[in-house]
Computed example of a mutant assay.
Amino acid sequence: MKKELVNNLEFVALSREKIVSEIGKVIVGQHEIIDQLLIALFSGGHVLIVGVPGLAKTLLVKTLASILDLKFSRIQFTPDLMPSDIIGTDIIEEDLETGRKHFKFVAGPIFANMILADEINRTPPKTQSALLEAMQELKVTVNGRDYFLEPPFFVLATQNPIEQEGTYLLPEAQLDRFMFELRIDYPSYDEEKQIVVETTAPEVSQPEKVLERNEILELQKFVRMVPAPDHVVDYAVRLVRASRPKGEFATKMVKDFVEWGAGPRASQFLILGAKARALLRGKPVPTIEDVKAIAYPVLRHRIIVNFAAEAEGITSEDIIADLLENVSES
């Protein structure tokens, strides 16, 4: 058993190294974002990526899909997009021999392993919610019939934070389905110079496939098999409960500036993500440091600040910083 564990740890670490290397052929920098994407992938979670135009959000997702042997589908969200455009619909089909007509289900682009939901806030809530059942249940329902999606199923949604005209805020229920909210910032001077040099050269490197679908499924199972020490689970639960203004662990800042704190799904994702992060670093069990490392992407979209916080310019990230500083590790 010990030899098998060591072999699995080595396989995970080697896979991470290969994936990062292949992504690096196309994407310059963004090391932390790439690491968090891999944590979410191996945890079986979904990711919301927020960043201004031109920061390679879409390119990053397409590159990751090309490296993994998964069926990829891109959905460009627009104001006139309908739920049936995403999940599919029934059409009437006529049998040429008998002349009898019957309904036939035509699957939509959601029937893939990796979904890029590009500019998800450009479409109304009715269409956004078409993703809800698929993200949580791995199935869609059309006219009372269930159609199951093939695992692994991974939704990566992008969102532009600066253009609010013609956009629709994501419903809280859907935001909570995303394991991480990742925020991509501008590259450094050296990185931007490298981007310009590489993208204006005659040839651009093409990434190679690294993992097969079955290997990804095995890695996801392996993550769940990793034991989480009690003190790590206790810390994750305390951290999440401390984000609730009426909770027993709430800090003064939370009581003063938070309208709604994170729910139990945040605790689940903190532990799952900590397990995946530990494995990606060759560790057999997660630590409190692994939980702290993913606290921002797990909690930033789950903590809703009140009017007093908005008036003083206090954001959910300020609340998370306060929690990490004041919630006891023991």
Score class of each variant (00 low, 15 high):
residue 104 K to E: 14
residue 104 K to I: 14
residue 104 K to C: 13
residue 105 F to T: 11
residue 105 F to V: 02
residue 105 F to L: 12
residue 106 V to F: 13
residue 106 V to W: 13
residue 106 V to S: 14
residue 106 V to D: 15
residue 106 V to E: 11
residue 106 V to H: 15
residue 106 V to G: 13
residue 107 A to Q: 08
residue 107 A to N: 06
residue 107 A to H: 14
residue 107 A to G: 11
residue 108 G to K: 00
residue 108 G to R: 01
residue 108 G to D: 03
residue 109 P to S: 13
residue 109 P to W: 05
residue 109 P to C: 09
residue 110 I to L: 05
residue 110 I to G: 07
residue 111 F to D: 03
residue 111 F to C: 05
residue 112 A to E: 00
residue 113 N to Y: 04
residue 113 N to R: 02
residue 114 M to P: 01
residue 115 I to S: 05
residue 115 I to D: 03
residue 116 L to K: 09
residue 116 L to R: 10
residue 116 L to F: 04
residue 116 L to P: 09
residue 117 A to Y: 08
residue 117 A to L: 08
residue 117 A to I: 07
residue 118 D to N: 13
residue 118 D to C: 12
residue 120 I to E: 09
residue 120 I to R: 00
residue 120 I to N: 02
residue 120 I to L: 10
residue 120 I to A: 09
residue 121 N to D: 06
residue 122 R to P: 06
residue 122 R to Y: 00
residue 123 T to E: 07
residue 123 T to N: 03
residue 123 T to K: 00
residue 124 P to Y: 12
residue 124 P to V: 07
residue 124 P to E: 15
residue 125 P to L: 08
residue 125 P to T: 01
residue 125 P to I: 03
residue 125 P to S: 05
residue 125 P to V: 02
residue 126 K to W: 15
residue 126 K to P: 07
residue 127 T to V: 01
residue 127 T to F: 03
residue 128 Q to Y: 04
residue 128 Q to A: 14
residue 128 Q to S: 06
residue 129 S to W: 09
residue 129 S to G: 09
residue 129 S to H: 07
residue 130 A to Y: 03
residue 130 A to D: 11
residue 130 A to R: 02
residue 130 A to C: 01
residue 130 A to Q: 05
residue 131 L to M: 10
residue 131 L to Q: 01
residue 132 L to W: 10
residue 132 L to N: 00
residue 133 E to Q: 10
residue 133 E to N: 09
residue 133 E to W: 06
residue 133 E to T: 15
residue 134 A to I: 03
residue 134 A to H: 04
residue 134 A to F: 11
residue 135 M to F: 11
residue 135 M to H: 01
residue 135 M to L: 01
residue 135 M to Y: 10
residue 136 Q to R: 08
residue 136 Q to L: 08
residue 136 Q to A: 14
residue 137 E to M: 06
residue 137 E to Q: 01
residue 137 E to W: 08
residue 138 L to M: 12
residue 138 L to P: 06
residue 139 K to E: 14
residue 140 V to N: 07
residue 141 T to P: 02
residue 141 T to N: 04
residue 141 T to G: 11
residue 141 T to R: 11
residue 141 T to F: 07
residue 142 V to M: 11
residue 144 G to I: 10
residue 144 G to V: 14
residue 144 G to A: 13
residue 145 R to V: 14
residue 146 D to M: 14
residue 146 D to Y: 15
residue 146 D to H: 15
residue 147 Y to T: 00
residue 147 Y to Q: 05
residue 147 Y to P: 06
residue 147 Y to L: 14
residue 147 Y to F: 15
residue 148 F to Y: 15
residue 148 F to R: 14
residue 148 F to A: 14
